Amino acid sequence: MAIQKFNLGAEPTGEGGDVDRVSWEKASANFKYLDENKLGKNEAAGSAKKLETPFLLNGVEVDGSANITIPTSDITKEYVDTAASTAESNAKTAAAQDASGKANSALSSSKSYTDQQIGNIGTTPINKGGTGATNATSARTNLDVYSKTEVTQAISNAKPPDTGTTPINKGGTGADTAEKARTNLDVPSNTDLTQAIAAIPKPQTYTLPTASTTTKGGVKVGTGLSIAAEALSIQFASQTEANAGIDDAKAITSKKMNEAVKNQLNATGSAPTFACRAWVNFEGGTTPIMRANGNILSVSRASTGVYTVRFLTPIYSDYSVVHGLNVSSSGKAGGALSISNMTSSGFDVNIWNNTWNPSDPYMASFGVFSK
């Protein structure tokens, strides 16, 4: 096998050339070839079997390629032995030097050629599994990584300082005590919060008054009312109970109320029921005396037998007046009266005795009905 050459590929990128492994395989094969074909320590190269410059020994030319014969008549045995020994030694030395020199020269040439071939290969790009660089700095730049020194320095710079405080914008509190930290972060301590809560005024004890027609308050739970599942339940009165009007613990509907009112007024049937909107019982005279009344402001006397009745609360002007009259205390004397000037505020009354003369009554009573 001859020494193999490297395929450098096209310039300048080396495209189409040997990859790293193939180049190193060729280099390894070259070294193997040289190793297998080198001469042993005691071996002579082909060119060393004959001296390049022969020398004369007692007039006989010696080149190391064949034995020589020296006449014994001309030299002594000692001289012959010395000369033979010297020739043999010189021949071996020359052969060894020649073989060694040529071997070293071949190895040097092979190494130089191999280094040249490897140097011409170029760099393996990143997409071929390389770094695309010829030194560590360029390789890190191409791979976008930090060196160990840079990483160590970055970690050292990122560590919180051994002294001082870490500011808030670095994730710290900017303080060296808990109190200062709370101040910087504007937060209260547990103690401050507990004290603030304790300082909140407590609600005063409040008793809900009982509801009435004039007071807003609570509803007393009793026979007619109950609370269950946060719901107020009301017990309603029956019609019989509403008519009786004696149960104060049950509610009553409007329909039952209407029927109960008619019952209390002794009104039967389906005809509507109307209320008396004002009434009065008075004794006539210079100063009339009202014995009893409802919604009556005053009864005044204009002259004998002439009176004016005024309502406390005005009513509908189209009303009806029902009256009763006694002109004497005996109750036997008859008389008459008339109603005039009816307004929403009151009406006038004229009273006569049984001789048709104006007369102040012993007793007169009026009932006013209106819608």
Rank of each mutant, 00 (worst) to 15 (best):
A96F: 02
A96C: 07
A96L: 09
A96Q: 07
Q97F: 11
Q97P: 01
Q97N: 15
Q97T: 15
Q97V: 15
Q97C: 11
Q97K: 15
D98A: 12
D98H: 07
A99G: 15
A99Y: 01
S100H: 11
S100V: 14
S100Q: 14
S100G: 14
S100R: 14
G101H: 08
G101Y: 08
G101T: 13
G101D: 09
G101I: 08
G101M: 10
K102L: 14
A103T: 12
A103Q: 09
A103I: 04
A103E: 09
A103W: 01
A103S: 11
A103R: 05
N104I: 10
N104K: 12
S105H: 13
S105M: 13
S105D: 15
S105V: 12
S105G: 15
A106W: 03
A106S: 13
L107D: 00
L107V: 09
L107N: 03
L107Y: 06
S108F: 04
S108R: 10
S108Y: 05
S109N: 13
S109L: 06
S109C: 03
S109D: 08
S109I: 02
S109W: 01
S110E: 08
S110N: 09
S110C: 12
S110L: 05
K111I: 12
K111Y: 06
K111F: 06
S112Y: 09
Y113Q: 10
Y113T: 13
Y113A: 11
T114W: 00
T114M: 10
T114V: 15
D115T: 08
D115I: 04
Q116F: 06
Q116S: 15
Q116Y: 06
Q117L: 07
Q117V: 06
I118C: 03
I118T: 07
G119M: 06
N120C: 05
N120V: 02
N120T: 02
I121L: 14
G122Y: 04
G122L: 03
G122K: 04
G122P: 00
G122W: 01
G122F: 00
G122E: 02
T123Y: 00
T123C: 00
T124N: 04
T124R: 01
T124G: 03
P125S: 06
P125H: 02
P125V: 02
I126L: 10
I126Y: 02
I126C: 04
